[in-house]
Amino acid sequence: MSETKVIEVAGLTKKFGDFKAVDNISFEVEKGEIFGFLGANGAGKTTAMRMLTGLSKPSSGKGKVAGFDVLKESERIKERIGYMSQKFSLYEDLTVKENIRFYGGIYGLSRQQIQTKTSHILEELNLDQVGTKLVKSLPLGWKQRLAFAVSMVHEPEIVFLDEPTGGVDPMVRRQFWEAIYQAAELGRTIFVTTHYMDEAEYCDRISIMVAGKIKALDSPDKLKDQFEAGSMDEVFLKLAR
């Protein structure tokens, strides 16, 4: 396997009874890439991501994440990935610092490492003033960026983001994407699902899922050329038809 491929998937399929939620998908993701996973609700994005993160076992097909087999080595994979869902994944009744400490703790970071990480995150997000405040008192945009920072507390190679910007206003979304770019610049691979077509433009490459299958996969510009469309919205509409 090549050094730069951090995700390799071939013929991955997930069946629930007779229904194929994910139908024979294959793709590769390069290190440091921002890889978008697009599709309408129910297209199979979340199911595909759950298989890659070890939350769900594939019915058939092969997959490697961070160099480890998704079928047999999901424990090794878990140590190397971060995950953030649309629900923000923080404990509202814990303070900002307690959240960082807890997530650092379950990834086996030492007390020293947790302290360094905590001050680093608080500084970077300008949260110094509210470190001892409960998370529920923070505005939505801050919570979201904190959740993103916390999902990387153990310096993972790949971060999976499951519709991280659901229900957030465009201004905050823009800020969030800046944070994503920063992480990618550090060599971290970002795997992000979304159903906002404008966000697709921010990705290096995107795959568009329709009814469990990948219908298109390329950079946003090339996709627009290929489908002779002015925007990703149009590309998506042409595919869905």
Partner: peptide, 8 residues
């Protein structure tokens, strides 16, 4: 979900 994705 986050806990299940973690190595715990």
């Amino acid at each position: 979900e986050i806990l299940l994705v973690s190595p715990l």
